[in-house]
Amino acid sequence: MSGRRGQRPRGPGPDACAAPGIVPAPGVRPGIVTAPAPATVSAARRPEATQAATPSRWVRLRRASRNPRAAARHHRPALAFATAVLALGLPLLAAAPWLLVAAALMAPFLAVNVLHARRNRERALVNGLAAVVPACGMLLVAHRAGGGTLAEELAPALACLLYFAGTVPYGKTMIRERRSEAYRRGSVAHHAAALVAAALLDPWLAVPSACYLARAAALLGRGLKVAVVGAAEVGCSVLLLGFLVALHG
């Protein structure tokens, strides 16, 4: 036994795929995937370091991270974000006090997002849908702030809500829930219902909605890369924008 201490193992060891001084990332099977660069390994061990510095991320890390310094890295970005909101929002609020009503209507959805961030469940379906509603509602706020009426932009805002709400389950069927039959059926069912609703808003809106339904049904199980899925959604967004500008200019 003592004569074998200096001998190297005959077969490839657990770090055979790694370069000297680099430890393979957790979950990487040696011999199948080459070890990532040191920076990649560090990011894999500290996923919060690669995330966007947002207030919701700060809330999540305060609750979920075992590293007490993880949330501290987001203190300054969160403070800068809040400062920018106050600096830009207070003058607008002074000129248009009705924005308080809009903020109050959006507050419950923000509360849902903060709650899910606190529970480390930001990818939940409800959380995604809750984020979409106030985002689409900003179309009404911006139009009203520009001197328009809510009635003029109600149909475009609802059209945006129908589309972007559909991207939440659709995105899951293409990535994290691509093997879930429930998500697949739910995504297609939503897009079918959205097609009918869009046609009731304006018959021309049935055209882009039909394209969204076709892509939700036809691209399932294709194994597309995330970048391809994202690029396709950019095109879908531009398509909706083009129809809304043409119809409501």
Rank of each mutant, 00 (worst) to 15 (best):
S2R: 15
S2I: 09
G3K: 15
G6K: 14
R8P: 11
G13H: 13
G13F: 09
P14V: 12
P14T: 12
A16Q: 10
C17H: 14
C17E: 09
A18K: 15
A19V: 07
G21V: 10
V23C: 02
P24W: 14
P26C: 01
R29N: 00
P30T: 07
G31R: 12
I32V: 07
T34P: 11
A35V: 13
A35Q: 10
P36K: 07
A39P: 05
T40D: 09
V41P: 06
A44K: 02
R45L: 15
P47I: 10
A49S: 08
A49Y: 06
T50E: 10
A53H: 14
T54G: 02
P55G: 10
R57S: 15
W58Y: 12
V59W: 03
R60P: 11
R60H: 11
R66L: 08
N67Y: 11
P68V: 04
P68T: 05
A71H: 09
A71C: 05
A72H: 06
A72M: 10
H74N: 15
H74I: 06
L79D: 00
A80C: 10
F81H: 15
T83E: 00
T83H: 03
L86M: 07
A87L: 15
G89C: 02
L90V: 13
L90W: 09
A103D: 04
A104Q: 04
L105C: 15
P108M: 14
F109C: 09
V112E: 02
N113A: 14
A117V: 06
A117G: 15
R118T: 00
R121A: 14
E122C: 05
G128L: 07
G128T: 06
G128N: 10
L129V: 04
L129A: 05
A135I: 03
L140A: 13
A142G: 12
A142S: 11
A142V: 15
R144D: 00
A145F: 15
G147K: 12
G148T: 08
T149L: 03
L150K: 04
L150W: 07
A151Y: 05
A155I: 02
A155R: 14
P156D: 11
A157G: 04
C160Y: 10
L161R: 08
Y163P: 00
T167V: 11
R176V: 06
E181W: 06
A182S: 06
G186D: 04
S187L: 00
H190L: 05
A192D: 00
A193P: 00
A194F: 04
A194W: 01
V196M: 03
V196G: 00
V196W: 03
A197D: 01
A199C: 13
A199I: 09
L200V: 07
L201R: 01
D202Q: 11
D202I: 01
P203V: 02
P203C: 08
P203G: 09
L205I: 08
A206N: 08
V207E: 05
P208S: 05
P208E: 00
S209F: 08
C211G: 06
C211A: 11
Y212W: 14
A214T: 02
A216I: 03
L220Q: 15
V226R: 12
A227C: 01
V229Y: 06
A232K: 01
V234Y: 08
V234N: 01
C236A: 12
S237C: 06
V238H: 04
L241G: 08
F243E: 07
F243D: 08
L244Q: 07
V245C: 13
A246W: 13
H248P: 00
H248G: 00
H248F: 11
G249W: 14
